[in-house]
Design a protein around this nucleic acid. Structure first.
Length: 411
DNA sequence: TGTCCACTGGAAGGGAGGGCTT
DNA sequence: AAGCCCTCCCTTCCAGTGGACA
């Protein structure tokens, strides 16, 4: 019988003990190291709900990987476990990066309540007002305390404003039986400046800040997971401290630390090695960074890819610092060759800003005096790697040998 | 000090696409 | 089928701007 393609990669002894999911940031362990204080504080606020009263709304701030989401999900689990005794609380978690419109947020919350009336709110088609009214009725019929957690609430507010939050924070005025409290989680301390003052004060009845983990704390977190994930003697002594140190440099990001450890172990496993070493961690660091960039590029819309490609080809020709005008000229040229519709310069400036935010290019506004004020743009990823990824797109493949027209580069 | 350049970026609105209601 | 609504992508319009230059 022919040998399976998986055969060479199957080993009797895996580096991982069992489910490697325990190394994913989404895994919620039985105990959250160094977040006891935050858990207790939240519990002290939410205990009100257990007694059938409305707890204060809470705003939680903290950088990525500081355990905000883990803590909030941990609390959610605790509430569910306690339901035997107190079955009066519903806990709804929602990530506003995924659902990021006014309508979407209200619709999503509404559809969490499947009751006897069993009416589902469609994902489009209704007026927001109507969605809100149905949501309110559904909530009121439950006669319970509803805790709504809105993760990444800042992204939602920046994108869609605060109308839905206004509704949610005022909803208790319209409810006869149920009670609603909202917990917002944000990476950004300043997003409340964009809120209507009424929403700001309603939402911020309680505020919490999650500090970044230091290297020692990250080590504890990693060690706790490593015990669950690996057989004994699999990790070299320096592996956990190195992952912790690298992640601590990045504002104490536990997510990054866990990713480093998991990817390092996967690299070791793939190369059929029995131990994970520091060199695997370093390889993991490079791999994660590269994966991030390639993924961002692959998922770009074609128009943005054209702009990016235009920047890359200019750089390969030695035109390192480009203006918006330069980029637009090359872009128009590329559109002509590929037969794509040419968008306006106004639209292109927005797409350039998006590429900047994704970290694929670096664009800063600069004035050249009489020569005008514009953006100075350069690639911030290795051009060769970038070109290779973009050329995977069949639409752009024909541009492989494209050379930009000579441009007057402003210096 | 005023002018002027090449944009920047906000505001408003069009229209396509998805879907609901009547 | 007609009339709505919402979101997304895009255009049009235009006031505003930093700094070199006269």
């Amino acid at each position: 019988m022919q040998q399976s393609v998986f055969q060479p990669f199957m080993r009797s002894q895996s580096i991982f003990k069992r489910d490697r999911e325990v190394l994913r940031p989404s895994y919620i362990p039985d105990e959250l190291p160094h977040r006891g204080e935050q858990i207790n504080h939240l519990a002290s606020i939410l205990v009100t709900a257990m007694n059938g009263q409305r707890p204060s709304n809470v705003l939680i701030f903290g950088k990525t990987g500081t355990g905000k989401t883990a803590t909030i999900k941990y609390i959610g689990n605790e509430i569910r476990h306690a339901q035997g005794t107190y079955s009066r609380v519903d806990y709804i978690y929602m990530n506003c990066e995924i659902v990021d419109t006014q309508y979407g947020v209200l619709q999503n919350i509404g559809n969490q309540f499947i009751d006897d009336f069993n009416e589902r709110i469609p994902f489009t088609g209704w007026s927001t007002e109507r969605v809100y009214n149905i949501l309110r009725e559904k909530i009121d019929r439950t006669d319970r305390v509803i805790v709504i957690v809105l993760d990444e609430i800042d992204k939602f507010v920046y994108k869609s404003g605060d109308d839905a939050l206004y509704h949610l924070t005022r909803i208790n005025d319209d409810l006869a039986n149920a009670k609603v409290s909202v917990i917002g989680i944000s990476n950004d301390l300043k997003f409340t400046e964009f809120l209507d003052p009424r929403v700001r004060s309603a939402l911020g009845e309680e505020k919490m800040v999650f500090p970044p983990y230091n290297a020692e704390q990250l080590k504890d977190i990693l060690n706790q997971r490593a015990i669950l994930a690996f057989e004994k003697e699999i990790l070299d002594e320096g592996v956990v401290p190195l992952c912790a140190a690298l992640a601590a440099q990045e504002h104490g990001d536990a997510r990054r630390a866990l990713d480093l450890l998991r990817v390092a172990a996967e690299i070791a496993e793939r190369s059929q090695e029995v131990r994970v070493t520091e060199s695997h961690v370093n390889k993991a660091k490079n791999k994660i960074e590269l994966d991030c960039v390639t993924e961002a590029m692959r998922t770009l819309p074609t128009q943005s890819k054209l702009i990016l490609l235009g920047i890359f080809v200019n750089e390969t020709q030695g035109n390192a610092k480009l203006t918006t005008g330069d980029v637009y000229d090359t872009y128009k040229d590329l559109c002509k060759i590929t037969g794509m519709a040419v968008l306006t310069q106004r639209r292109i400036t927005d797409l350039i800003s998006e590429l900047d935010m994704l970290g694929l290019i670096h664009a800063r506004v600069k004035s050249f005096g009489r020569a005008g004020r514009t953006k100075e743009i350069e690639a911030s990823v290795p051009v060769d790697d970038g070109m290779r990824v973009l050329e995977e797109d069949p639409m752009l493949n024909q541009l492989k040998n494209y050379k930009p027209k000579m441009q007057m580069t402003l210096m």
